[in-house]
Design a protein around this nucleic acid. Structure first.
Length: 473
RNA sequence: GGCCCGUUCGUCUAUCGGUUAGGACACCAGGUUUUCAACCUGGGAAGAGGGGUUCAACUCCCCUACGGGCUGCCA
């Protein structure tokens, strides 16, 4: 076990082969929470050693995704590819220490070995004939550097999530550390980088649990201090299968475009596969206080969009108006929607109090605030127009007269509306519906009082007049 | 095939040998109501199956079933 007083250093190490996957985002979040909650460092390394599949566009997309989620990293982004000399250096150190050896077996020979084993019905791991060969017999052709792994006994991983996991060493082959072209493999590169970067806690997907045994052997071969491993289960789709495109959005940025607030995403993702008693809705500051490896579950969790929406809705409701407006404008930009005009921004600010506790996404927020964003003459939906029959129009005209000199407060408006309805001998709903139609051109809106207060007296009276003049169909 | 991991309401989960198995989302019913929501009240809903260990098992052990991962000169 590592010394507990070592300052915490975590890292996120994605391969730049596409956008930031939602599962990767959660892995990054867990690492970030763990480090930041303990005054530690959170590092970012791009595992770009696969030159065929790695692209700068993917790296940029990953950085954007992390930034949107609010996961800031310490120091420069590390490129694994740029550290290849160092990896090769370590491979040669292993050679010098005798914990690795040169293997001259060709890929054809290895493939033939596997094919033969499979034909016999056995699945033996490849045993290099060069492991104990006399250097005098080395041929003059390219070779790989393989780790000299222990052949008997077992390798034990103490995992903070999975517990004690034991691997029989005869199940593990001598992993290749350096390819025949002199480039490092993932197996070597991760260990060297994590060691050099001082990573103390490796929180990653449990698809790497098996690899941890091989990683440990490399740490041991170099006499390096072991990190704490925490292998977390992957996220699955609603049907319990591995999350894929057919489940809908898999990229973090897609969620941004769908209008989910980052704080809600963080909350939801934190709770997905992690729990602290009954904590459900919390701020990031609270999450930093609570988050711990011991709260991580061992079973894969399924994405539940309904719960995501609920969580996001609660975050929108509890976010301060100014911050909400700021994030909304960022949303408009990334979702290629028109930016707010000065007037719209002003009206939206005034409308925020009556729309934010009903919206689950920024798209819904905008929709609820529709009445405040439009300008005359407003477009009238057919269902709304249906409320503007001659009788209702007469009533609205009556109402307009009363509004001319009213104080524009809810306590003043309320008796005016109720008495207008009472004098007409109808329920309040019969007045509210045409009024709503006249004010918003829709049938579903915030309360008529809120709308009137937000748009003000002049605009209210103007819209009522427009409605009265609207040609009957 | 081998190795490794997992399995509590539909979903996310609490429980860390003794609970009427709790909460949240979702769902259903009722209430409130000027629309949509929101909100309030109530309700149904779970320990994969089988063996052990124990006075006592969701909790510990084993087997089976099912799901997932690894088994590359990919990461």
């Amino acid at each position: 076990m590592a010394a507990p007083e070592r300052p915490v250093v975590t890292r996120f190490a994605p391969s730049p082969t596409g956008f930031l996957h939602i599962g990767g985002g959660r892995t990054a979040l867990f690492n970030w929470l763990y480090a930041r909650g303990r005054g530690g460092k959170f590092l970012l390394r791009i595992e770009d050693t696969d030159r065929e599949r790695s692209t700068p566009e993917a790296t940029a997309a990953i950085l954007r995704g992390l930034t949107w989620l609010g996961l800031d990293w310490d120091g420069e982004v590390v490129s694994q590819f740029e550290r290849r000399e160092r990896h090769a250096e370590v491979a040669h150190q292993m050679l010098a220490r005798g914990t690795a050896y040169k293997c001259f077996s060709t890929q054809e020979q290895i493939a033939a070995f596997r094919a033969e084993a499979e034909a016999r019905g056995s699945y033996a791991v490849f045993q290099s004939p060069w492991r104990d060969a006399d250097p005098a017999t080395y041929p003059n052709r390219p070779y790989v550097i393989r780790m000299r792994a222990p052949k008997s006994g077992e390798t034990v991983i103490e995992d903070a999530v999975q517990g004690t996991v034991r691997f029989k060493n005869d199940q593990l082959d001598d992993v290749i550390c350096l390819r025949s072209d002199g480039t490092p493999t993932y197996m070597l590169a991760v260990v060297v980088d994590d060691h050099d970067m001082g990573v103390t806690h490796i929180i990653r997907g449990d698809d790497h649990l098996n690899n941890a045994a091989r990683h440990k052997m490399i740490y041991d071969a170099m006499d390096w201090e072991l990190p704490i491993w925490a292998h977390i289960p992957l996220i699955h789709g609603p049907d319990g299968k591995k999350l894929s495109k057919r489940h809908g959005a898999t990229g973090v940025e897609e969620y941004q475009v769908m209008g989910y607030p980052a704080a809600g995403m963080r909350n939801y993702l934190t709770r997905l596969g992690w729990a602290h008693l009954d904590a459900e809705i919390f701020t990031t500051a609270e999450a930093l206080q609570m988050f711990d490896l011991s709260g991580i579950g061992r079973a894969p969790a399924r994405l539940d969009f309904k719960k995501l929406e609920n969580t996001c809705g609660q975050h929108i409701a509890m976010t301060a108006d100014a911050a909400l407006l700021h994030e909304l404008e960022a949303f408009l930009a990334v979702s290629s929607r028109p930016a707010l005009t000065e007037t719209q921004r002003d009206l939206l600010t005034r409308a925020m109090y009556c729309v934010k506790d009903r919206a689950k996404t920024f798209i819904e927020l905008l929709d609820k605030a529709h009445f405040a964003m439009i300008s005359r003459p407003i477009r009238m939906e057919a269902a709304a127009e249906a409320f503007l029959d001659p009788v209702s129009r007469g009533m609205l005209q009556q109402l307009t007269l009363q509004l001319q000199n009213a104080d524009w407060t809810k306590s003043e408006l309320e008796p005016i509306l109720t008495s207008t309805a009472a004098e007409a001998g109808i329920g309040f709903g019969k007045l509210a519906s045409p009024l709503r139609a006249a004010l918003a051109g829709r049938t579903a809106t915030p309360s008529v009082y809120d709308m009137m207060l937000v748009i003000g007296r002049d605009e209210t009276i103007a819209r009522l007049a427009d409605a009265a003049l609207q040609p009957l169909r």
